[in-house]
Design a protein around this nucleic acid. Structure first.
Lengths: 125, 125
DNA sequence: ATATCAGTTGGAGTTAACTCCAAGTCAAGC
DNA sequence: GCTTGACTTGGAGTTAACTCCAACTGATAT
């Protein structure tokens, strides 16, 4: 697959794909004799993984470290596991926080709805 | 309250408080005759609200618009309600997404745990 | 009166994560 | 052989949200 095909398929811009490669999130992408990137299905799966983790808030730096450990082979299995577990914990925290904020927003909107029914009300903020 | 007191109380740096003011997220902070900001309890509540919304991912720009509508008075009640409702929807979407990512991480970590038990296993990424 | 300290301002600097650009290369179609 | 279009690179530019800084001021303690 060319970079533009992967870009469409994964919904990630070609620039971002090249950026991820430079940043160490993807390595060893095959090239055609002419030097053009030739992505495999496996590469796509990895890109989807990166995309998913990025959208959840994992930083480029954390992902870079993860894939760097990968390159060092099997003996880093435990370290990688622990890295993921640590990220999971902070995601969990953000999840709870988001849940609370959603509740707060729900409440605030209900207050607005009340104010809108009974004319002449205003809120503090 | 002085800016440093509010900073401690709300766990927001003084620079950030001044930045929020410049950005239009807080207005009409009282000043002492000498020109020093003097925050009220009400100001703190608003700052807590901003902090909460910011940490959930609402942009400065959205909050700026919200408080700008506020300054225009009661007739913007409906607009403000709708603005909040719209933000709520995108938070909900991010919430679901985060939930899925958490599941995916849980699964991946379980795969790691299996690989760690049975020696000699390696993953694709 | 002077030193200290917390506060003030406008504006510059930082960081993460892209995003864009110019100049060049390569393969395919005419 | 030439044009076209997709690809390549290194590096510059952008954006959001702070964060820091220098130069100044006003209140308080000695």
């Amino acid at each position: 697959m060319t970079i533009s095909e992967v870009s469409k398929k994964c919904n990630v811009s070609a620039d971002t794909l090249r950026y991820y490669e430079k940043a160490g999130l993807i390595s060893f992408i095959n090239r055609t004799p002419g030097g053009v990137r030739n992505y495999t299905e496996q590469d796509c799966k990895q890109i989807e993984f990166i995309k998913c983790m990025r959208s959840a808030g994992l930083s480029i730096e954390v992902l870079r470290k993860y894939f760097e450990l990968f390159k060092r082979g099997k003996r880093t299995l435990k370290t990688r596991r622990d890295l993921l577990a640590k990220e999971r914990e902070s995601l969990r925290a953000r999840f709870i926080e988001l849940q609370d904020t959603l509740k707060r927003l729900d409440y605030k909107i209900s207050v607005y709805d009340k104010a809108l029914k009974s004319k002449d009300k205003e809120l503090k903020f």
